[in-house]
């Protein structure tokens, strides 16, 4: 019974990973790509690891998978934050159909 639930979690996780990577190809600029892919890939990989925990039970690999979920949820948003800020500071423009950019307005007012 646990193995059926594990297979369901793994299939859902792989599907979300696939949609995230499709967004990495389709969307138009750096911020939108980061936006789509970091959410879908984080929850998809967490779902795959939870499926591994359901397969293995309470032994070495299963508990390490739970620790890995905690680590992944704590660190993936930090990398997204660092990459978007460094992209903006290194001069990557937004998409030309974007609505507003308050960050560059405030940076121009400061300097």
């Amino acid at each position: 019974m646990n193995e059926i639930f594990g297979l369901i979690f793994i299939i859902v996780g792989v599907a979300f990973d696939f949609f995230g990577c499709l967004g990495l190809v389709r969307l138009p600029d750096v911020y939108n790509r980061l936006h789509s892919s970091i959410k879908c890939v984080t929850l998809g990989t967490s779902s795959i690891l939870f499926g591994l925990f359901l397969f293995k039970g309470f032994n070495e690999a299963g508990l390490k998978a739970l620790l890995c979920i905690l680590f992944l949820i704590l660190t993936a948003p930090v990398t997204a934050h660092v990459l978007s800020r460094s992209a903006h500071k290194s001069g990557v423009k937004l998409w030309e159909k974007s609505v507003c950019d308050k960050y560059s307005e405030d940076k121009d007012a400061l300097s």
């Binding site: 138009p28 911020y31 879908c40 974007s98 507003c100």
Partner: peptide, 26 residues
């Protein structure tokens, strides 16, 4: 909120017209 974010992101990616209006707000 994470699960809702995933379904929302998958919908925006799969839709043929890309329904996005991006921007940076404060």
């Amino acid at each position: 909120e994470c699960i809702k974010a995933n379904i929302d992101g998958a919908y925006r990616v799969v839709h043929p017209d890309l329904p996005i209006r991006p921007g940076i707000v404060k």
